[in-house]
């Protein structure tokens, strides 16, 4: 991908130790990436609005005949995901300070925690489906809103796990340097974004 290979190709622009071309394209890419995350927030917001709207259109929630969600397990699973946010933060910090080994350890921990969260979600889905008999299409607006939103989020986590794995491999191959690591910054932003969305989803599905 061109994003990763830019810094090496334009080394000739460097003046006085500062690669102006890199700095300016980094600025563009950072702004663009933040706009991308913002529009993703809007996509989630559309479904969150739909969920809250449907939830308030009925008399009770969950609708009659559907068991309440398991808060204890979800709290534990949320902590797993939030923990991965913290490890991701320290992965980037260690990269900035040049501690490659600590960086790699933290990034691997993030990936493992992300996979653990997905595993937890898979467990929760199977439990809902087989024990509580709640399904995507067959349980009215409850199943529709819950599985659509958490599924969208789980998809984002899965994409993030792949993304972070690619970043790990790229950094092992020396694509990034101590000063030029926009890919890692973007990965961290994305992963934090996925965490923050879960803060909202956890609150609206399990807490209110």
């Amino acid at each position: 991908m061109a994003v990763a290979s830019l810094p090496q190709q334009h080394a000739e622009h460097a003046e006085g130790g500062v690669d102006r071309f890199y700095e300016e394209t980094r600025d563009l890419r950072l702004t663009g990436f933040l706009f991308f995350l913002f529009s993703d927030v809007v996509l989630f917001s559309a479904f969150i609005f739909a969920y809250l709207y449907l939830r308030n259109s009925g008399q009770s929630w969950p609708p009659p005949g559907i068991a309440r969600l398991d808060v204890a397990f979800a709290a534990w699973n949320s902590v797993v995901l939030f923990g991965s946010g913290a490890t991701m933060h320290y992965a980037l910090e260690n990269w900035k300070h040049g501690n490659f080994n600590k960086y790699a350890g933290m990034l691997i921990a993030t990936i493992v925690l992300g996979i653990a969260f997905l595993g937890g979600q898979a467990y929760e889905y199977t439990h809902l489906y087989f024990v509580d008999k709640v399904s995507w299409a067959g349980s009215g607006i409850f199943g529709a809103s819950f599985f659509t939103l958490t599924g969208m989020h789980g998809f984002h986590v899965a994409v993030g796990v792949v993304y972070l794995t690619v970043l790990l491999l790229q950094s092992i191959h020396g694509v990034y340097t101590k000063d030029k690591h926009f890919g890692l910054t973007a990965g961290t932003l994305y992963w934090h974004f996925v965490d923050i969305i879960w803060v909202v989803l956890f609150s609206i599905f399990y807490l209110i």
């Binding site: 933040l34 808060v71 204890a72 979800a74 709290a75 534990w76 949320s78 902590v79 939030f82 946010g85 913290a86 933060h89 961290t188 932003l189 934090h192 974004f193 965490d195 923050i196 879960w198 803060v199 956890f202 609150s203 399990y206 807490l207």
Partner: peptide
Amino acid sequence: QFFKIMLALLAFGALIALLAG
């Protein structure tokens, strides 16, 4: 700046998860 906002929200998320627990 965004990392700071996100860390604050992360702390908030951990807080509500622990209170839920």
